[in-house]
């Protein structure tokens, strides 16, 4: 327990941790402030204004149509006729439905509809911070010689590395839970002031809670992977290098190659789509090069592949286990020189 509390203290004392937490807090605050000021609550005034605007645009459009139709008819039989459809057929008169008041409404924050994307934003930012702080937490220890010092005090390699990882993951779990609670509360207030909280049934709340739980898992895996990669390379740069390499190779290189090769569902080989599948429960990708004419809807229906959260979860678990086990194994077997 003393080792665990020492490692927690070491993590929270680090300037790197403090700076990144401050940074992510400022970014999140900026997002919240931005959402507050770019949305507004819909009341009778806003509805009336939108209706008036829609009506005004409809009338303007109708007038324009009348003028165009008159010009067209006047041009028939002259050399200007080719500027208009033959016999002015096909000129469609605007209808009232083309100018719906809802399209003129100001942006409003519908909690049930919009908050899930805010949960993804929070999870992505915290996962990034967990990855970098996790990598630096153990990487800096290795490169500064602190790890060797610690092993002289506690010559139990697996216990030392395991305790460090546990301290990191518990810290980020607590941090994510607190941030998620504050984030939810904050956007609920924003929705009340600048939008709507309608439709928030217990099922909707449960869905948000489960999404935040998946966000927590994402943060934990990112932290553990950053930690594990830096421990494998015994340097923070190892984790960052592998990540940049993976981004270049997988996202740009592999993406381009698969695209050129015309591979079906090429997106499924890329990381972000799996992250979206994990957070949004499922994501459907379509193969635009194929057509299925047997559908009841008729016409060309492209082949589709649905990636679900259990599939994405299995990949996350696999990466987590692979990196953590490899880092533990090398910690146990490699000399500390």
């Amino acid at each position: 327990m003393s080792l665990y509390s020492a490692e927690t203290r070491r993590l929270t004392k680090r300037r790197f941790t403090k700076l990144f937490l401050l940074g992510v807090t400022l970014i999140l605050a900026a997002v919240a402030v931005g959402m507050f000021f770019t949305n507004q609550k819909l009341g009778p005034d806003q509805i009336a204004s939108a209706q008036a605007q829609a009506q005004q645009d409809y009338e303007r459009s109708l007038e324009q149509f009348g003028r165009d139709l008159a010009d067209c008819r006047a041009a028939q039989g002259t050399d200007r006729a080719d500027r208009w459809p033959p016999n002015c057929e096909g000129m469609v008169e605007p209808t009232r439905e083309d100018f719906q008041a809802q399209w003129y409404m100001p942006a409003t924050f519908d909690f049930r509809e919009t908050f899930p994307s805010m949960v993804t934003t929070l999870a992505a930012l915290l996962a990034l911070v967990a990855f970098i702080v996790g990598a630096s937490f153990v990487g800096a220890e290795w490169s500064s010689g602190g790890m060797m010092n610690l092993l002289l005090w506690r010559p139990q390699r697996l216990r030392v590395l395991g305790t460090k990882l546990a301290a990191l993951l518990v810290f980020f779990t607590a941090l994510t839970v607190v941030f998620s609670a504050v984030w939810t509360g904050l956007f609920h207030l924003i929705a009340q002031a600048r939008g709507s909280t309608a439709g928030m049934t217990s099922g909707a709340w449960q869905s948000i809670a489960l999404m935040e739980l998946r966000g927590l898992v994402l943060v934990i895996v990112a932290g553990a992977v950053g930690f594990g990669l830096a421990s494998l390379g015994r340097h923070t740069a190892m984790a960052l290098g592998v990540t940049i390499g993976a981004l270049i190779v997988f996202q740009f290189g592999l993406g381009t190659v698969l695209e050129l090769a015309g591979v079906k569902f090429a997106e499924a080989y890329l990381i972000p789509i799996w992250m979206i599948a994990w957070m949004d429960k499922e994501v459907k990708i379509e193969d635009s090069n194929s057509c299925d004419f047997s559908s009841a809807a008729g016409g060309c229906q492209p082949d589709a592949l649905t990636l679900t959260w259990p599939m994405a979860g299995a990949i996350l678990a696999g990466v987590f286990v692979l990196v953590v086990v490899a880092s533990m194994w090398t910690m146990r077997s490699r000399d500390v020189t």
Binding site: S2, S5, E7, R9, N149, W153, R154
Partner: peptide, 8 residues
């Protein structure tokens, strides 16, 4: 202090 913590 951190070493002292780690080593009890």
């Amino acid at each position: 202090s951190l070493l002292a913590d780690a080593g009890g």
